[in-house]
Design a protein around this nucleic acid. Structure first.
Length: 763
DNA sequence: ATAGGGTTAG
């Protein structure tokens, strides 16, 4: 019965389309005692490869045979090659030698593919064994060099071939596309005497890679015949280049002409659906998947998890994730981790991260960027340090997140360490890396370095411009931002809404009224943030009535930012009536934000109305509103130091309080008197409680004074809300000790020198 | 075939 079964085996095997079928078939083989035969074991393993069965299942089948032959070994190697499990493959190769099994020719292409970046060494090895003349092996090498480079060698091997068939030409075309050589790919395509469906599909995927949708579609439409793979290539082209709707409609067309989708099609379709963020679309797709009995391999399941996570149901995503126990790969884990970090559920993400059996660089990146994007920059940096200490090689994505985290913290020393690390380890510098560097340098106060990086770039994109513009805005350089706006238009880069927020903010902080008006007029459809910038600009230059009019006449409902600007302007220009109006609006919009009470009392203080200041203070106490305190951060010696009100936790606390006391003494002697009106001021209480209630920013400043040499620049970073007396204090210190002090107060820089502060308008 | 990155904010 063995013989006829083998003859029909192809028919039987192609009917196995799910892992459950495979298991049933395996049971049948055991029933007929055929499960020890080389032929059937090899076929089963091949099915495992095609169906993406879990590794333990395949290795269980493999281990059930006593002495595998070349066929079984080859298929098992193919299985591992799909998983990228290189160590397993080389172990199997060694085992073959130990068992004295001569590898047959068809194993070499598999091994060469797997050898990947080590292809060169492997090539030399095969040359020594004089195996390089085999045409399959040559073709495999064209593929390997085409993929990993140098492409010149691929071309040499291709040229040396005595006769080149379609398969060889296809390999070469794919190689050109891989190196984005559109010209050579097209030339070879035009030269080819005969082309097959694979040739045409390679052109579709090639143009898709270049994001050239017009040509991709042109070749797709011109194809004499289309396979499922051709349809997949075109659907994926749409999916990967940001046209999910087109991908889905092409999928409909595919179904209409009667082409049966395979696993790959489903993955592309599901991921298109993820980008549409349309829950009803998700429901109908899931229904279709269930009705059609789609083989839910690991890829399909992972795509489904991602789809649920991106379309709002993180619980559903987690439910499927839990059901896949034992059928997950590293991407499945990463998908779930990113699902959590995207919505800020860092604890859940971290739990999975710590639990996952195998991590890759993406796992680390997801977690690091998760922390960085959710305001936990220092944790991001900690995790990065852990990563490098474990010898895991960061890539360009890692450094982008870490540099951005350094920027948020103002951690310049650490940032420079990362820059050094990048050049030492030859990490690729792409636009994102450059952009993150521009961000970091401008956040750390060095517009010079930021500008240098900006000019170093070969091509700048809208984010490069936005980042630099925002940097100049924070440094009170208005003219520079309008010039950059001009320059980017000349370079053919369209400004977006963030560009305009940056330029308008800069105009506002520099008092460039007319320029700001011009810029605002040039915005096609200004959104609420642009209106907020205009209100801010008008308010700061003293045109308070016009500012209020703009807020009333704009086409959308004002948000807190608008009233915040009005309130701030009222403080600067001592307009009690408008201040009260804006504050009342803010109390309605943000009842939980205690900062608004403080702002209103500052308005009263600016006009010397101390009874009202006192009234607000009592009101705050009565309503149980407490000022939320934040940490102040600074960087010294590559380490981040943080301080909070009444902090005694710093290892140098005693010295810090001594410096603080000296600072006060000096200020007293110099005739400094505290600004009476500032509700944040607690000088008397501090003295009563022996400075336990000291503000975090004062502690940070004291620490900075302690650790830096006189005359050096002090860099105080992050969350420094330097108000009234602290501001005066720093100004006095800079004069007394002849130091330049740079202080960052959220997004603004204040340079204290010679009793001057370069950001005066802010106060 | 599925996963990860850079810019805004009173």
């Amino acid at each position: 019965m063995n013989k006829p079964l083998q003859e029909n085996s192809n028919v039987i095997l192609t009917k196995i389309t799910t892992i459950n079928h495979l298991k049933q078939f395996h049971a049948k083989l055991i029933q007929y005692s055929l499960h020890h035969q080389h032929y059937w074991v090899a076929q089963l393993i091949d099915r495992c490869t095609r169906l993406h069965a879990p590794p333990h299942y395949a290795s269980c089948i493999f281990n059930s045979i006593h002495l595998p032959n070349a066929f079984v070994f080859t298929n098992m190697i193919k299985f591992y090659s799909q998983l990228g499990a290189y160590s397993h493959i080389f172990n199997l190769f060694d085992d073959m030698h130990k068992c004295n099994i001569k590898p047959n020719a068809c194993i070499y292409p598999v091994l060469i593919k797997v050898a990947g970046k080590n292809g060169l060494a492997f090539h030399a090895h095969l040359l020594k064994m004089s195996l390089d003349s085999d045409k399959f092996i040559r073709n495999a090498f064209v593929n390997v060099y085409g993929q990993y480079g140098p492409i010149g060698i691929a071309r040499e091997l291709f040229d040396e071939m005595s006769e080149r068939n379609v398969v060889d030409c296809n390999a070469m075309i794919s190689a050109y596309w891989n190196w984005k050589d559109e010209f050579e790919a097209k030339r070879l395509f035009d030269l080819m005497p005969e082309k097959n469906v694979i040739t045409w599909t390679a052109m579709v995927s090639g143009y898709s890679k270049m994001k050239d949708m017009v040509n991709a579609r042109r070749y797709f439409d011109q194809m004499p015949e289309k396979s499922v793979v051709s349809w997949n290539a075109m659907i994926s082209a749409y999916a990967q280049n940001g046209y999910p709707k087109e991908a889905l409609s092409l999928f409909d067309e595919m179904l209409n002409v009667g082409v049966r989708p395979n696993d790959t099609t489903w993955v592309a379709v599901i991921s298109s659906c993820s980008s549409c963020s349309d829950p009803s679309l998700v429901e109908s797709l899931v229904k279709m998947i269930n009705e059609k009995g789609v083989n839910r391999n690991c890829f399909v399941n992972t795509a489904i998890i991602d789809m649920y996570a991106k379309c709002g149901s993180i619980e559903m995503a987690r439910k499927i994730f839990d059901q896949l126990n034992g059928y997950r790969n590293v991407v499945t884990w990463n998908t779930m981790i990113s699902a959590y970090t995207r919505v800020g559920m860092l604890a859940s993400a971290r739990e999975l991260f710590d639990q996952m059996p195998v991590k890759n660089v993406v796992s680390w990146n997801s977690m690091i960027s998760g922390y960085s994007q959710n305001g936990q920059s220092s944790v991001a940096i900690e995790l990065f340090k852990e990563m490098t200490s474990k010898g895991i090689m960061p890539d360009e994505v890692t450094v982008v997140s870490v540099i951005s985290a350094c920027g948020h913290l103002g951690a310049l020393e650490l940032g420079n360490w990362v820059v050094n690390f990048i050049s030492e380890n030859q990490i690729k510098l792409n636009a994102s890396v450059y952009n993150s560097l521009i961000f970091m340098y401008s956040k750390c106060g060095s517009m010079k370095d930021a500008t240098t990086i900006f000019h170093k770039m070969e091509t700048r994109d809208v984010i490069s411009y936005n980042t630099l513009i925002t940097g100049f805005a924070a440094h009170g350089k208005g003219i520079e931002t309008t010039q950059l706006l001009q320059k980017m238009k000349e370079e053919g880069i369209d400004p977006d809404r963030i560009t305009y927020v940056g330029v308008l903010t800069a105009c506002s902080h520099t008092g460039l009224l007319e320029e700001g008006r011009e810029v605002f007029k040039s915005i096609e459809s200004p959104d609420i943030d642009h209106y907020a910038c205009m209100v801010d600009l008008l308010g700061r230059v003293g045109k308070l009535n016009e500012a209020k009019r703009v807020s009333e006449r704009m086409p959308m409902d004002p948000h807190a930012g608008i009233y915040g600007s009005l309130l701030n302007a009222s403080r600067i220009h001592k307009r009690i009536d408008l201040g009260e109006f804006a504050a009342n609006k803010l109390f309605e919009l943000e009842p939980e934000n205690s900062g608004n009470y403080v702002l209103l009392s500052n308005v009263y203080a600016s006009a010397g109305r101390w009874e009202d200041v006192e009234r607000i203070r009592t009101l705050m106490k009565k309503e149980g509103v407490t000022k939320t305190t934040g940490w102040s951060w600074m960087e010294h010696g590559g380490k981040i130091h943080k301080f909070i009100v009444g902090d005694q936790s710093h290892e140098r606390s005693v010295e810090i309080y001594q410096v603080l006391a000296e600072m006060k003494k000096k200020l007293r002697t110099a005739g400094y008197e505290a600004d009476k009106g500032n509700v944040l001021r607690d000088v008397e209480e501090e003295e009563k409680e022996e400075m336990v209630g000291t503000h975090s920013e004062k502690l940070a400043v004291a620490f900075a004074l302690l650790v830096t040499e006189p005359g050096a620049i002090i860099r105080v970073v992050k969350n420094l809300r330097i108000c009234g007396d602290c501001h005066t204090a720093i100004k006095m210190i800079s004069k007394l000790e002849e130091r330049e002090i740079i202080v960052r107060d959220n997004n603004r820089f204040h340079c204290f020198k010679d009793n001057l502060c370069s950001c005066k308008e802010y106060w």
